[in-house]
């Protein structure tokens, strides 16, 4: 088992990209297969997760709850917002939320959750890089991209440019994702915190594209045909630099140890949150 578990079992490294493979089309197809059923497995039926969101919307936001201290009346863009649970939580808190995501299955689940929660969200089914076909620049107070987003891009600059363009003058771009030190470098042995030993075994500078099982696949044991996506893992230097190159002024970086355990992996950065403005 290695640290790429969060996105499913690592399948194979290959160089098919050089042969003109359209990875965006493949990724889009994979995300349009069974994700609705996967989200039902993961979160329950829309009305079930809606009840949980209504009971404690800030809990759904997890470690981002501090960032979203006050969202009432704020216009929020949730880039590639997937199943919509975060967006619905933000809508329950009074925000006006737009998701842009290219999956019809994700869209159906998110809209069903929103309807069950009694809130409205605007779900645009589109490649995020084509958002300008639907939304004007400088529309949003907050642009959010979180957990497993940036590895879908083989060039980060167009993605960062979208974030920059969508922000209004006082707006904030919030990017939370898996920390490259964990995803690219470190592996471990040992099933308990006391005996667990860590080593650097990965290549932080690896620029290759990986073929991995789609993220929702781990929630679908019954899935007959596995769906795969292609991802590129970025270094923190590449992420920060691409933000700055597209005009984003970085306001803060937070590097977080494991948020889901008090004992495992405490001295290792597992996630990061970058906040930037115009």
């Amino acid at each position: 088992m290695n640290v790429t578990d969060h996105i499913g079992e690592r399948i194979v490294m290959d160089n098919e990209i050089g042969s003109g493979l359209d990875i965006n089309a493949i990724n889009m197809n994979s995300w349009n297969s069974d994700s609705y059923a996967a989200w039902v497995e993961r979160f329950g039926k829309p009305e079930e997760i809606a009840r949980k969101i209504l009971a404690d919307p800030k809990k759904i936001l997890s470690s981002l709850r501090d960032v979203f201290a006050e969202v009432k009346g704020k216009k929020i863009l949730n880039m590639m917002g997937s199943n919509g649970t975060k967006a619905v939580a933000l809508a329950v808190l009074g925000a006006e939320v737009t998701i842009v995501d290219f999956s019809e299955e994700n869209r159906r689940y998110a809209l069903d959750v929103a309807a069950s929660a009694g809130v409205k969200i605007n779900y645009i089914q589109s490649d995020i890089l084509k958002i300008r076909d639907y939304v004007d620049n400088r529309t949003f107070d907050i642009v959010l991209a979180e957990m497993g987003i940036i590895h879908y891009f083989t060039d980060l600059n167009p993605f960062m440019k979208i974030a920059f363009d969508m922000l209004n003058n006082e707006g904030l771009f919030i990017l939370k994702d898996f920390h490259p030190v964990s995803t690219k470098l470190i592996s471990y042995r040992g099933s308990t915190a006391k005996i667990r030993k860590y080593k650097i075994t990965g290549d932080y500078f690896d620029k290759s594209i990986e073929k991995v099982e789609v993220a929702y696949g781990k929630h679908l044991d019954s899935m007959e045909i596995k769906q795969f996506v292609y991802i590129r893992k970025w270094t923190l230097g590449e992420i920060v630099t691409s933000m700055a190159e597209e005009g984003l002024i970085i306001r803060s970086l937070k590097e977080e140890p494991n948020q889901s355990s008090e004992v495992f992996d405490r001295g290792i950065p597992k996630t990061f949150t970058l906040i930037a403005g115009r």
Partner: peptide
Amino acid sequence: HSLENILNAIIESGLSIRKIREFD
């Protein structure tokens, strides 16, 4: 110091981060 320590101290001083190059 973590990268968070370094970057946030730079940012809070009023400077803007332009580029990070990492080497092996």
